[in-house]
Design a protein around this nucleic acid. Structure first.
Length: 276
DNA sequence: TGCCAGGATGATG
DNA sequence: CATCATCATGGC
């Protein structure tokens, strides 16, 4: 029989937190607007509708008792963004970027989910990535009490073949998913261990996976491993660095470079830079 | 209808 | 080490 459990909890939302900016900026691919201002999505085995009204975050979790601890962590609600932004205000250019998305936050997604998502993201745009992730979960992931399907477990994916993944329509990325899954399943790739390695070593470890290069590795570190010093560099960000911050390297932004990157990237999307 | 997408790989200069 | 074609697919 269908489980219809839904529970709502309320949290006092921190300042500098906005759902639209955070959930629709290319960090995650399983959240959709409900049409009335809220967002619904699944992550880490949890399905919820999130609504931010005034200073209160309403979380309605489906199919299981609401678990605020998970969402606090996922949305990174306990981090003091005001303090981090104070540091960024020293740079007028960065301050300008921040004004375009003052409430954006770096999500803390499960590492495995981020790895799958950003393998699929390569040479694709967000609408198609969302479709790929959707088909990956619906086709191969376990059914959750909410009725949605979670990301497939590494062992599940590792047992499959490229032919089995054909309905995914992922192109050459299907082989990359399988390589990642097999490495995690056979223990040769330990995401928990990589998470606490010095970042240079973590980068190298992740790039052992076929289909994981500098950009994907950086996204996994930043969005899936809480490594806020990571700094994904795509073509837009490279251009932004050249035109807005000539001479600077990602490391120059400090231990929260990844958050700075998020402000800059959002700024670039809404305010395309002149092609030098 | 084509162009191109929050890239990575393997082969060449 | 820098450049370059190639990869499968489909939003727009």
């Amino acid at each position: 029989m269908a489980v219809t459990t839904t529970q709502e909890v309320r949290l006092r939302a921190p300042v500098l937190f906005d759902l639209d900016e955070t959930l629709d900026c290319g960090q995650c691919f399983r959240f959709s607007p409900t049409g009335d201002g809220a967002w619904r999505g699944t992550a880490g085995g949890h399905t919820a509708v999130l609504r931010l009204t005034g200073g209160t975050l309403f979380i309605t979790e489906e199919g299981r008792p609401a678990e605020t601890a998970f969402w606090r962590r996922y949305l990174d609600l306990d981090r003091d963004y005001a303090a981090i932004r104070d540091g960024f205000l020293q740079d007028e250019r960065l301050a300008a970027c921040m004004r375009y998305a003052p409430g954006i936050r770096v999500l803390r997604q499960p590492a495995w989910e981020a790895l799958l998502s950003f393998i699929l993201s390569q040479n694709n745009h967000v609408p198609r990535i969302k479709g790929l992730v959707q088909r990956l979960c619906d086709g191969f992931g376990p059914l959750l009490p909410s009725g949605e399907r979670d990301y497939p477990a590494p062992q599940t994916l590792a047992a499959l073949t490229e032919e089995a993944l054909a309905p995914l329509r992922a192109g050459w990325r299907a082989a990359y998913l399988l390589d990642a899954a097999r490495r995690v399943a056979d223990g040769s790739l330990d995401l928990v261990q990589i998470q606490r390695l010095p970042i240079e070593e973590a980068r190298i470890a992740l790039q052992q996976i076929r289909g994981v290069g500098p950009k994907v590795a950086e996204c996994v570190l930043l969005y899936g491993m809480g490594r806020l010093e990571a700094f994904p560099l795509d073509v837009w960000m490279k251009r932004a660095m050249r035109t807005l911050f000539p001479g600077l390297t990602p490391a120059d932004f400090g231990p929260y470079a990844g958050i700075a990157q998020q402000y800059i990237f959002h700024y670039c999307r809404r305010h395309p830079l002149e092609v030098a």
